[in-house]
Amino acid sequence: MLKIENLHARVAGKDILKGLSLTVNPGEVHAIMGPNGAGKSTLGNVLSGRDGYEVTAGSVTYDGIDLLALEPEARAAAGVFLAFQYPVEIPGVNNTYFLRAALNAQRKARGEKELDSMQFLKLVREKLKVMQISDELLHRAVNEGFSGGEKKRNEIFQMAVLEPKLAILDETDSGLDIDALKQVAQGVNALRSPERSFLVITHYQRLLDYIEPDFVHVLAGGRIVESGDKTLALKLEEHGYAWVREHGEPAGATA
């Protein structure tokens, strides 16, 4: 469903991704690990179409289409979702209103019927139950005055409502205590399905104790230098990223 080939990308004149290749099949969970500055967040931003990220070479094919040619909102409608490392506050805009506008914009773009308030409310109630989120969150403005944990949970809740085909979690574990981490992981696990794929970008192995990946890749110096199963993450935890640099041969990983 997602095929990244020889991707090169530049931010503010600096080359960050230098030949990254990765293939993700439906239903797979891929963890992308790596030291700070390796290009992990750049990968998420390039895939979701953020301004200022210039692709200089390579390609990204998603569901048979050229993903890089699409505007961010079109990528969202096509089923790509990015859970932000730092979710943005939008003062005065009600969380539920925002989510309904997002869902209906996506549905409209896909040629599906928009949901009215009643239908939407019903959907939200179902998802709240799955996510174990209090509905008090719904009545507040988007991320305004949310704690770090609430913001991250809200991202996962949005994901649950929008039901993407490819979800990219950008350091969703950063800044979470262990309880919040478990809740977020439970939410993600509840959304795993044979059709839905995940790219879990993280710095630490601990998230992978709760979200079990099918594949683990190590990103260093702008490309994937090592790929394996979940035991790779444990090795990394034990030896640190320095071990990869000595040990691993740069390689385009396929899975």
Binding site: G49, D51, G92
Partner: peptide, 26 residues
């Protein structure tokens, strides 16, 4: 901010709609 606009767009909301939503909230 760019971040607010991108946040809305990454959820599927087009640029003009995102601006009016942010202004309305304001």
């Amino acid at each position: 901010s760019d971040d607010q606009l991108f946040y809305c767009r990454s959820r599927g909301i087009g640029e003009e709609d995102a601006v009016s939503m942010i202004v309305d909230g304001f």
